[in-house]
Design a protein around this nucleic acid. Structure first.
Lengths: 257, 257
DNA sequence: TTAATAGTGTCTCTAAGACATTATTCC
DNA sequence: GGAATAATGTCTTAGAGACACTATTAA
């Protein structure tokens, strides 16, 4: 939230639902690291999660999808609402900096704009395959970058907390949904998905037990292809079984790693 | 939400965060039934969940606690935020009825009041011990009653959905938190807690396995007392082990029933 | 003694977890 | 053949789930 506030159209008080923001923690996976897509508004030192507001004609879920689309160019990403944040002080401290940013951008917010007031943020997280994303910063962002969740830059507002909670929700959900589908390329190797789970859960998983459980769930399938890279044994490629995957999404599964 | 809107002070646009409502699904347990505390506004046929708005000086969690306190007279109840609801049509259909209720109550809302506009509802559920509650209806409620979740009356807005989702969240959380503590009297019998879990989960649980697992978790403790009722063997009383219970709340446990 | 409900023990089977060796590829 | 990484099988153990009888009370 709060960031895309810099888009001038947000001052249109008829278009948006006042006092309600949507923040979307966009996760990506690359180089054996879990990353978050963050933006830094013009003239700001601190970063924010991808955010925006809710049009009066759309649902909060649609707003969250729009935010993801704006920054990644991708539609229909996996998206989960995990919590809302609302208290009088969560944004106060950083308002002045934000206001300055408005002015630096040549936009003069009305002094009593609702954007500067108490606002509740409905937080989502989104999963996306890293290589598909070509990040697109907004007109008022100085930067839009992937950051490793393990080493975040200084964050505005309560956004460090929001990311922390998103990560908790992701770690909870990984046991119930086949998360890998969203974070890996269509074809992937066992070591890749193994490393993904280790990264997200932040612990090592025995490779034999991991493979056994994953295969017995039936959601991935071995292909008759090999990826040749390097001076060592080449790994087989795997893909998700769409049917099993959809069923798992819908009904939940239990993957007790 | 939406209901306590009938309180005239909600028209004070300075006091409350506009467009943000809090709905609180208050669960109680009695007579081997899981119940929800519902209110019916004056002159309305349909019922609503306990709800209200957020003061600009408080957090959404505080608002939810206040709502629970207003209706039950109890503080510090177990309270979980489980989802937010926001789309353009969720309340539309029932606005006219609500407006009528405003007027019947002798209160004339300004025609463009934010209360009638798009509003997002942040939904919580609360657990409370049935016998402790003396329900207190608000000035604009015609009724405030416990209803069995299995047989709900006609509900306003999307409140049937909200209750359904609250129940899903409760069923999810029952595996991770020692829910019984909030819904049972301080001293209770094994058949009582057994029946509580069966009711919430909507399935029968083998009494021997249930007892074994519950006791091995250590969160309840057998007392040296018996409750004498009826022409049959009298059950022992149990109580929760506060320390183990607090640890379970904080760190989560796994009760795989 | 009977009717009603409370309380408890054992067996089986599945699956989680611990653990180490062999296989492939390229240099 | 050596270095690097991929792949795979077995044993042990804990716990989930199925199952039925005995104990207590009061009428």
């Amino acid at each position: 939230m709060d960031t895309t506030a810099l888009d001038a159209s947000y001052f249109d008080e008829q278009l948006y639902v006042k006092h309600v923001a949507v923040d979307n923690v966009i996760f990506g996976y690359h180089d054996r690291e879990l990353k978050v897509l963050l933006q830094r508004p013009n003239y700001q030192q601190k970063w924010t999660v991808a955010g925006g507001y809710v049009r009066k004609t759309e649902s909060v879920e649609e707003a969250a999808h729009n935010i993801a689309f704006l920054r990644t160019g991708l539609k229909d990403l996996f998206l989960e609402q995990f919590r809302s944040f609302g208290n009088p002080s969560r944004t106060k401290e950083d308002w002045l900096a934000i206001k300055k940013s408005f002015e630096n951008a040549g936009v003069q917010p009305p002094p009593d704009s609702w954007i500067l007031d108490y606002s509740v943020s409905i937080a989502f997280y989104t999963l996306t395959e890293f290589s598909l994303v070509s990040v697109q910063k907004g007109p008022f962002d100085e930067a839009l970058e992937w950051w490793p969740v393990a080493q975040l830059p200084p964050m505005m507002f309560d956004h460090a907390l929001i990311i922390e909670e998103a990560l908790k929700a992701l770690r909870r959900d990984i046991y119930h949904y086949p998360i890998g589908y969203e974070l890996l390329p269509r074809k992937f190797t066992l070591p890749e998905i193994h490393s993904l789970y280790e990264t997200i859960l932040g612990k090592t998983l025995d490779n034999r037990n991991f493979t056994r459980k994953l295969m017995s769930s039936g959601i991935i399938k071995k292909l008759d292809e090999i990826r040749s890279i390097g001076a060592h044994r080449s790994p087989y490629l795997y893909k998700f079984e769409k049917k099993k995957y959809d069923a798992a999404l819908k009904n939940g599964i239990f993957l007790g790693f």
